[in-house]
């Protein structure tokens, strides 16, 4: 299992291939189109993430000592953002998730998506990932 640092470096390398914002965003959209669907039973009111113009669902389940996330949206762009977050955080330990805020997203050019007033929900989704990790960390402490 790769570490957070390795995963972040992979994203940096991948996005370094694109020179402009259009190419970066189209790459995010392509990742979104490739995101596997979430089990319909997991799309509940409790798993809904507020703060996004599209619908977003996200839940985390423990697999051994690691957190496994399931997430989806009805917008391709948001699915792409989910795909990026899963590449960074899926199947890490709660402690590793909490120790690594997603600074790399700014480095790859997504800083414009990282404010609470944006309608894409990235900020809210990061909040959900960290909250789930926090809850698990407290449970096992």
């Amino acid at each position: 299992m790769t570490s957070f640092a390795e995963r972040a470096q992979e994203l940096r390398d991948e996005f370094a291939l694109f020179d402009d914002w259009r190419d970066k965003l189209e790459n995010v959209m392509d990742l979104g189109k490739a995101l596997p669907p979430m089990e319909p039973a997991l799309k509940t009111d409790a798993s809904r993430v507020q703060g996004c113009q599209s619908q977003v669902w996200m839940v985390g389940t423990m697999e051994g000592d690691r957190l496994h996330f399931h997430a989806e949206s009805d917008a391709i762009l948001v699915k792409g953002l989910i795909a990026l977050l899963l590449r960074l955080y899926d199947r890490l330990t709660p402690a590793e998730i909490l120790a690594n805020p997603p600074e790399v997203l700014k480095e790859i050019g997504l800083e414009r998506y990282l404010t609470p007033s944006r309608s894409n929900g990235l900020y809210a989704m990061i909040g959900r990932i960290q909250a789930v990790a926090q809850a698990q960390a407290e449970r096992t402490a």
Partner: peptide, 10 residues
């Protein structure tokens, strides 16, 4: 098949 948010972002 396309969310309005995607249309706006593109």
């Amino acid at each position: 098949g396309l969310h309005h948010q995607d249309v706006g972002a593109m």
